[in-house]
């Protein structure tokens, strides 16, 4: 049974009397212990869909249709209080910028212990011991001393380790990491992602990794959802998608990035135009204005998401070579 099951989720922004869908009819699931990547550019809805799972949508955003089932429970029917208990204990989240997600005027120890006491009901002394263990597990040296320090004493990479320790505090079943290493240097990025991968493996934790970096997806995820304009346009095993993309957007993304493992003289083939503006009304397939293969039907009819793909004219070995 999947750990998380999202069905036909639509999330809209309500502003100035208008309704703008940011996530459109998204369905996916994740198995226990699995790592799933959500890839997309700005405005693709990858972050908003995860905030909906966490029950952390801001006031102007509302789920207008669909269901989110976690461990057999319907998350959308839970009260705010029940949702609060679930967060941290069963699902936790790691954000991009650790400096803004940590409280600058409370010690690191207090912030980790808060999560432990809240979720596990341990005494202060037990919570402190667990906090020190967690810091050690995420690779913070001198944990006994550092637990007394404040976020500004920590470097960006170390802060992100603290965020991971907090996320792990109650041994959740699912961690959602939203661009967890985008603000970090490459060598530190590798350390943090290796750490997350090891921890998820050791604890059997499922991981939703939200990123725009195709290399990170290839190295760390088993399955990928490619998102564009609020929809999942292609979904499947990372290997299959990279080796034989079926959606023109996926193909375009892969051809847009320069690669260290290929000859540097291979020219990049960018996708024309800009990512779909959520506020613009685009008929049919939201990718059609940028799609080199678009035909009449793409301008009028929204392609249904079927067998891991939403495209009227899926690419095949022949069409791919023809470009």
């Amino acid at each position: 049974m999947p750990l998380l099951e999202i069905d036909n989720l639509t999330v809209s922004l309500f502003q100035d009397g208008t309704e703008t869908p940011l996530v459109r009819d998204v369905s996916y699931s994740i198995e226990p212990g699995e790592t799933l990547a959500l890839v997309g550019e700005s405005g693709s809805g990858k972050s908003v869909s995860s905030l909906a799972v966490m029950g952390l949508l801001s006031k102007a955003l509302r789920v207008t249709s669909g269901t989110i089932k976690f461990d057999g429970r319907d998350l959308l029917s839970l009260s705010a209080e029940e949702m609060r208990k679930l967060r941290g204990r069963d699902i936790s989240m790691v954000f991009q910028e650790p400096m803004t997600s940590l409280n600058p005027v409370r010690s690191i120890g207090a912030q980790i212990m808060e999560s432990i006491e809240e979720n596990l009901g341990l005494t202060r002394a037990q919570a402190r011991a667990r906090a020190i263990d967690l810091l050690k597990e995420v690779g913070v040296a001198d944990a006994e001393q550092r637990i007394k320090q404040y976020p500004h004493h920590f470097s960006g990479g170390m802060r992100q380790r603290v965020m991971i320790a907090i996320a792990l505090a109650a041994d959740p079943k699912l961690i959602i990491a939203d661009e967890p290493t985008t603000a970090l240097d490459v060598t530190i990025q590798a350390q943090i992602l290796d750490l997350m991968a090891r921890i998820c493996r050791d604890h059997g934790t499922a991981l939703i990794l939200i990123t725009h970096n195709l290399g990170i997806v290839a190295r760390y995820a088993q399955r990928v959802n490619v998102m564009y304009g609020g929809r999942i346009v292609e979904s499947g095993a990372a290997r299959a998608i990279y080796n034989a993309p079926r959606h023109p957007y996926t193909e375009g993304l892969l051809r847009s990035v320069p690669r260290l493992d290929q000859d540097r003289s291979i020219p990049l083939k960018p996708i024309q135009g800009s990512p779909a503006d959520p506020f613009a009304s685009i008929s049919g397939c939201r990718f059609h204005p940028r799609c080199p293969y678009a035909a009449q039907v793409c301008r009028t009819e929204v392609p249904l998401f079927k067998d891991g793909l939403a495209c009227h004219f899926p690419l095949s070995a022949n069409t791919r070579e023809a470009v």
Binding site: S155, G157, M158, V186, T187, I188, Q189, A190, Q191, D194, N213, L214, G215, I216, V217, A218, R219, Y220, A238, R239, Y242, N243, L254, V257, R259, L260, D261
Partner: peptide, 21 residues
């Protein structure tokens, strides 16, 4: 430290993250 957008290559490659800050 740079992951390549190639799951096959990444699966084969052994990489060691640089320690320290």
């Amino acid at each position: 430290a740079v992951p390549a957008p190639d799951p096959d290559g990444e699966g084969m490659r052994e990489h060691v993250a640089l320690a320290g800050e």
